[in-house]
């Protein structure tokens, strides 16, 4: 039985690459937009820094207050808390490092979105 010859690679490639029929929008975009749920905008960098700083300041204040508390909690927990030494200069380095990270992350996010 004779089998028909098959189209060569070039013919098939040309067929596959031929432009598909156009699909008109016909209100599709409007339907998608109507279905979009509200979305929170991302936090701007200045606000992010402020929040990070406030959070760290809060932690620092809490830690300082904690160190003055006469512990009524279980002894083991209080010992663990007392054993955790955290000097002010260390807190400062931590705040600076976290702020730098927040700024770098924000800059990188912008680059990524732009496809850089």
């Amino acid at each position: 039985m004779l089998t028909p010859p098959e189209p060569d690679d070039d013919t098939l490639d040309a067929l596959l690459q031929s432009a598909p029929r156009a699909i008109p929008d016909d209100g599709f975009t409007a339907r998608v937009c109507a279905a979009l749920p509200p979305r929170k905008a991302s936090v701007p960098p200045a606000r992010r820094l402020l929040l990070s700083g406030a959070l760290l300041l809060g932690c620092l204040v809490a830690w300082m207050a904690w160190s003055r508390i006469d512990p009524t909690l279980p002894t083991a927990l209080a010992d663990a808390a007392r054993g955790w030494s955290f000097e002010p200069w260390q807190a400062l380095i931590f705040v600076i490092a976290l702020s730098a990270w927040a700024v770098a992350r924000d800059a990188r996010e912008g680059d990524v979105v732009a496809g850089v």
Partner: peptide, 14 residues
């Protein structure tokens, strides 16, 4: 992404 701008997204959809 930054402003949650639906009109910009509509542009992408279109």
């Amino acid at each position: 992404l930054q402003r949650g701008d639906e009109r910009a997204y509509a542009g992408l959809v279109a």
